[in-house]
Design a protein around this nucleic acid. Structure first.
Lengths: 135, 135
DNA sequence: TGCGAGTTGCGAAGTACTTGCAGGAATTAT
DNA sequence: ATAATTCCTGCAAGTACTTCGCAACTCGCA
C-alpha cells in the first residue's frame, strides 16, 4: 500500500537507527530508553544512547510513540498502537499487566461528569497488587 | 491528650528538623522533597536536603507520610491523613486536583473482579486535562 | 550525481538523588 | 544533674540519568 515508509510520511528521514528505535519500541511493548537502546544494539551495536533519546523524543512528537510513567522514576515508552490498554503495575512483584481500556470507562465517565476532568488512563500506570501477589 | 509527641511514640527522636519536615508535608498537602526542603528552610534555614530525604523516608516507614508518583520523575509526599483522595494531574497546566476516592470505587471493583488486581488508586496520579484547560 | 539539511556519534555538562562519614544533639541510666 | 550511648544532621563525594554542542556523515530531492 504505502510506497513510502510511515516515517517518511511524518516528514522524518528514514535512517536505520530511527527505524530500529521505532521497531524496538513496538516489539518491546513497554520499555525504558535504556532497554530500547539495548534492543537496538542487537542489530546496530554502535548506536549511541543520545541518539535513542533523541529519536524517542522525535517519534513522540509525530505521535508514533508515547511515554508513560510507571513510577520508578524514568519514563517508559510504547508504540502508539498500544494505546488501547492500561497498565497494571504490581507494587509487590513489579510486573506490568494489561487491561482493556473499557474497565475504566465508567471511572473516566465519572470524572468527566463530576469534575469536567478528561482522563487519559493510559498515560499513567495503575498501581496495586496483582492477582499472583495477593495470594 | 498526648503527653508525648507522635514522633516519640513511633520510636523516633524528636528533632526540630524532623518535626518541621512532618509539619511541612502536612501544610503543603502534596510536595516534592525539594518543596518540603524549601518550606522547612523558612523556619530552619540550615537544613540539608539529605536530611529532608532521610526524614521523609523515616516518616514513611512509620506510616506518618506516604509518597505518590505524580509522574514528573520524583516522588511526591503527603501526610497519611490525606490518603483519602486521589490526585488529578492536568497535563496542560500542571495543576493537581483532588477527587474523593469513591469515584474510582467502581473501577477498582472491576479490576478486582475481572483481574484479581487490588488497586491502590491513591498511589499514582490520574493523568488528563482539567476542566479549566479543556475549554 | 551533487547539494543542502537533517542526523548521528562522542564527549562533556547538567540535574536529581543517594550514600558515607564524623561531629553534634537527644535519650536513658546512674 | 551528669555522663554515656545512640541516633541524627550536615557536608561532600558519588551515582544515575538526560541533555547539549560540535564535527562528520547520510538521506532525499532536483
Amino acid at each position: 500500500m504505502a510506497g513510502k515508509h510511515e516515517l517518511h510520511e511524518k516528514g522524518l528521514r528514514l535512517t536505520p537507527q530511527r527505524e530500529l528505535v521505532l521497531s524496538a519500541v513496538r516489539s518491546l511493548g513497554h520499555a525504558t530508553p535504556e532497554e530500547v537502546a539495548e534492543k537496538v544494539r542487537q542489530t546496530h551495536p554502535g548506536i549511541n544512547l543520545s541518539t535513542v533519546y533523541r529519536n524517542l523524543e522525535t517519534l513522540e512528537n509525530v505521535g508514533l510513540v508515547q511515554h508513560t510513567h510507571l513510577g520508578h522514576g524514568g519514563a517508559t515508552y510504547h508504540a502508539a498502537e498500544e494505546l488501547t490498554h492500561l497498565h497494571l503495575v504490581c507494587g509487590t512483584c513489579g510486573s506490568v499487566g494489561d487491561a482493556p481500556i473499557d474497565v475504566a470507562a465508567n471511572f473516566v465517565q465519572n470524572l468527566s461528569d463530576d469534575y469536567g476532568f478528561k482522563t487519559d488512563v493510559t498515560h499513567f500506570a495503575i498501581y496495586g497488587t496483582c492477582a499472583a501477589c495477593v495470594k
